[in-house]
Amino acid sequence: MKDLVAEAKGRVATVSPEHAATSEGSATLVLDVREPGELETHGRVPDALHVPRGLVESRADATAQTAETRLTDLRDTGCVHVLCGSGARAALAADTLRAMGYQARVIEGGFEAWKAKGLPVET
Rank of each mutant, 00 (worst) to 15 (best):
T63N: 04
L4E: 14
A27R: 13
K115W: 00
E7S: 15
T28E: 05
V82E: 09
G118W: 12
L92H: 09
T77V: 11
T41F: 04
A90T: 06
M1T: 14
R34S: 06
A90K: 01
V45Y: 00
G78D: 02
A20E: 04
T66F: 11
A13G: 14
A99T: 12
D32Q: 03
M100C: 01
T66R: 14
R11V: 09
G37K: 10
G78C: 08
R75E: 08
V33F: 04
T66W: 07
E18P: 07
G110C: 05
A20R: 08
V82Y: 03
A93D: 08
K9C: 11
E122A: 13
L74W: 01
G43W: 07
E24H: 11
R44F: 06
C84K: 08
K115F: 07
D32K: 00
A21Y: 07
E68L: 03
P120F: 04
G109C: 05
V106M: 05
G101Q: 01
G54E: 11
G54N: 10
A90D: 08
L39C: 04
W114A: 02
S16F: 02
A64E: 10
C84A: 06
H42F: 15
A48M: 09
A60Q: 05
G118D: 11
V33C: 07
T14V: 09
R53M: 13
S26L: 12
E18A: 13
G10K: 09
R70L: 10
G25W: 02
L119V: 00
E35W: 04
K117Q: 14
E35G: 02
T72D: 07
E40R: 11
R59D: 05
R105K: 14
R44D: 11
E57K: 14
T41Q: 15
A20C: 01
R105V: 09
L31F: 00
T63K: 10
A116I: 05
C84F: 10
E122S: 13
V82W: 04
V82H: 00
G37M: 03
E7A: 15
G118S: 04
L71D: 02
L55W: 09
H81G: 05
E18V: 13
E18G: 09
A67F: 00
A91V: 03
T28P: 03
H81V: 03
V45T: 01
V82R: 06
E7Y: 13
L4F: 14
A62C: 01
A6R: 14
M100F: 08
T22G: 08
T69N: 11
W114L: 08
T72L: 07
L4I: 06
A27Q: 12
R98L: 13
D73N: 10
